[in-house]
């Protein structure tokens, strides 16, 4: 009854096979290898991010039996890795759902980590015959996709929402499947924000490239254009991208305001002012940069809302209503101002 394909060469995180009366199940390594860590690092940089998945199915941790807990997770490999690395001393089953390689939280929001998928996989993988108990432990952040009472009604399994962070699972299990208040609260620490930065930077390249090209094109008609003046005029835009995609996310709690667009615009404005004064840019040129650069950082910061665990769609809608028109007005004025500067030969 083991549903997992017994490939001639299983993935590197499979360290053996667990034979039970209900079938043979792959045993997962509870230690991450250098290879896992390297690939996780690449994924954080946006490389091969979408194909980074494990096969849906039932996996064994240690030597689980009919009374061992079942932990349910997504088939995004980073989700799977962060679960298995905390299960060192345990005997447990892992049920991996097919979330199309998307993490628990996002998949629950989309409904792929959902009631229907869970019910289907419980049947497809013969879970009722695998264990004697009728309990499933799900990550708390999957609750937006799962209706626990519906799972109970159609399969007889009780959904127990476990802690948000996989690192709390050993304690949670020891504590009789009771999570403390802290385990139920989502966090967004400096380190949690830091790991998101590379993706934010990579996703901002189009805007930055456009701004840089625009500056380069503007500089060429002038006979005074030197390499140095070109660098001087493109630096404020690299700074704008860094302000919106790096500084604002990293220092999010310390930047005044609640609106992300405002936080990004503010950061962009002050860093641009600082760099322009440092590079001795004045007058109309300074004004142009102060229009264009903060609108870029504001837009990038606004896009960071999707990566946070505390922004509501109603809030995002509200802040977009005033920030998007303002960003458009500022950037269009900035573009016209640059053309006007060019015409006047500044």
């Amino acid at each position: 009854m083991g549903e997992n394909d017994k490939n001639p060469s299983p993935p590197h995180y499979i360290v053996g096979w667990h034979k039970t009366l209900s079938g043979v199940f792959p045993v997962v390594d509870t230690k991450l290898t250098l290879r896992d860590k390297l690939f996780s690092f690449l994924v954080r940089l946006g490389i091969k991010r979408m194909g980074y998945m494990v096969n849906p199915g039932v996996y064994a941790v240690g030597k689980p039996g009919g009374d061992s807990p079942i932990l349910v997770t997504a088939n995004y490999k980073l989700s799977f890795d962060s679960l298995r690395k905390h299960l060192g001393a345990l005997d447990a089953w892992i049920l991996v759902l097919d979330t199309k390689g998307i993490n628990v939280w996002c998949a629950a929001g989309k409904g792929t980590f959902g009631t229907e998928e869970l019910i289907n996989k419980l049947r497809a993988f013969n879970i009722p015959f695998l264990v004697r108990h009728r309990h499933l432990i799900l990550p708390q952040l999957s609750a937006s996709g799962i209706a626990a009472h519906e799972v109970k009604r159609s399969t007889g399994f009780n959904v127990i929402y476990g802690p948000i962070r996989a690192s709390d699972i050993p304690y949670f299990l020891k504590n009789g499947c009771k999570a403390t208040k802290e385990m139920r609260r989502v966090t967004f620490t400096f380190m949690e924000r830091l790991v998101l930065i590379p993706i934010e930077l990579i996703q901002s390249w189009k805007i930055v490239l456009f701004a840089l090209l625009f500056q380069v094109l503007l500089s060429f008609p002038s006979p005074d254009t030197t390499f140095l003046s070109l660098v001087k005029n493109t630096l404020p835009y690299i700074n704008a991208a860094l302000s919106g995609a790096v500084l604002t996310p990293l220092f999010l709690p310390f930047i005044p305001g609640r609106s992300f667009a405002f936080k990004g615009g503010l950061t962009g404005f002050f860093t641009t002012l600082f760099f322009c004064l440092l590079l001795d840019l004045k007058g109309a040129v300074l004004l142009t940069h102060l229009f264009l650069a903060p609108s870029i950082s504001s837009y990038l910061a606004l896009n960071f809302t999707g990566a946070t665990p505390f922004t509501s769609p109603s809030g995002v809608k509200k802040e977009m209503k005033f920030s998007i028109p303002l960003i458009i007005i500022l950037s269009v004025s900035g573009i016209f101002l640059s053309i006007y500067n060019l015409w006047r030969g500044i």
Binding site: C106, G109, A143, S144, G145, I146, A147, A148, H149, F260, L302, N303, T305, G306, T308, F310, T311, S312, P313, S314, G315, V316, K317, M320
Partner: peptide, 20 residues
């Protein structure tokens, strides 16, 4: 989604400007 008595209503979604 997890209220068995349908006592809660919220216009649920993801707070993501890029998606909007």
């Amino acid at each position: 989604r997890n209220c068995p008595f349908e006592a809660i209503r919220v216009s649920a979604g993801v707070g993501c400007a890029a998606a909007m």
